[in-house]
Simulated scan of single mutants.
Amino acid sequence: MGDSAADRSPRSAAVLGHPVDHSLSPVLHGAAYRALGLDGWTYERIDCTEGQLPAVVDSSPDHRVGYSVTMPNKFAALGYATEVSDRARIVGSANTLVRRETGWFADCTDVDGVTGALAGFNGLPAEPTAVVLGVGGTARPVLAGLAAAGATRVVLASRRDNAGPAADCGRALGLEIHTVLLSDATLPDEVSRSDVLVNTVPEPGVGALTHLVTGANRLFDVLYDPWPTAAASAALSAGIPVVGGDVMLLNQAFGQVELFTGRPAPRQAMAAALADALGR
């Protein structure tokens, strides 16, 4: 592997986001290309707003094979694509653009990130129940990942009565969705009865919700930096199993590498590079 002229020929990918300096995608993809022997491959960060995305992708050099897409550009990426995966269409956003002969293909490997994170729990039932805190853009791939992991019933908890789009997404995925406010008196009981609590609420907003976390059976926090988060700290102090967003980040990158290179992702090399970057 890595000895052919094709392996040494220039190829590139990049991450599009604003801001983008914090992105660890270059760490993950760079480690993958090295492990695969793709000596001519490079990966870069491109600071790009949602409005700038079409022009940036339009001007892609011939050697550009694809883009990782982070916020706030995931909705624009979906709208730009000429072909869209079913899961990206249902979720309503794309974190991956892949060049094809007919144009650009959009996918949402964030779903793989969620299923990979859920697989990190020991003893999770085959049809887990879940409570999801927050109904923003991240909640939708979380719902898709829960559905892919066999979930059937999910409670969506939001600060305001704005869970409709996320609830519609969940129902399109075949989930039984219930919506409550974060202030609802029934929510602690829902959390204690569910198999997993998923936090998508950014810091510091989750600080006021730690009373919910300490009643959970398992916590998946989509955040990972700084670590531990307020939610993770509360769970760990209570002896509750925790999986962090770094596991989601790693697992979503596997699919991107495979879409870009056409080869199985070198998972151990990528995991080691991420752990080193995070100092864990």
Rank of each mutant, 00 (worst) to 15 (best):
R267F: 05
N199P: 04
D168M: 14
D21V: 14
P72D: 08
P165H: 07
L236R: 13
M270A: 02
L212I: 02
A144E: 05
S68R: 05
D195I: 03
H63C: 13
D225K: 13
T42G: 14
T115M: 03
R89H: 14
Q252N: 07
L118E: 11
C169S: 09
S233C: 10
A216M: 03
L182E: 01
A172F: 10
G137I: 03
E258T: 11
V206Q: 05
V242Q: 00
F260R: 08
L274K: 05
A14I: 10
A277N: 06
L146R: 04
G244D: 15
D184F: 03
V242N: 00
G137T: 04
A94K: 07
A167K: 03
P241L: 12
D221P: 13
T138P: 05
R280G: 10
T109S: 08
H22F: 08
D161N: 10
V222H: 05
D3F: 14
A147V: 01
T82V: 08
I46C: 05
G145C: 03
G205S: 10
A230V: 14
A163R: 00
E190L: 15
F121E: 12
D168C: 12
L118C: 11
A273I: 12
T96Y: 03
P128T: 01
D7V: 11
A77W: 01
V180F: 02
L53F: 06
A185K: 03
A147Y: 01
Q52V: 12
A13D: 12
L28F: 12
P266L: 04
V27T: 15
R87W: 13
V69Q: 06
E101Y: 03
P26G: 08
N73T: 12
D39K: 14
T186F: 02
L278E: 12
L173E: 04
Y33W: 12
W41P: 06
R8Y: 05
D21L: 13
A126S: 15
P72F: 05
V142E: 09
D110P: 00
R89P: 11
V257T: 11
D3I: 14
L16P: 02
G37C: 07
A81V: 11
V27K: 08
A117D: 09
G136D: 07
T82H: 14
D189G: 05
D107F: 02
I240Q: 02
P226I: 06
T70W: 04
L259G: 06
M270R: 00
A147D: 00
L175C: 08
A5G: 09
T138D: 01
R64Y: 13
G215N: 01
A167T: 08
F105M: 11
V198T: 02
L223V: 11
W104V: 13
F220P: 09
S60W: 07
G103K: 04
I177T: 04
L38V: 09
L274I: 07
L278R: 15
E258L: 09
T70L: 05
A35M: 07
T115K: 01
L250E: 00
V196W: 09
L156F: 01
S158W: 01
A130H: 01
T115D: 02
A76W: 09
A265H: 03
Y80R: 07
A130P: 09
A81K: 09
V222I: 13
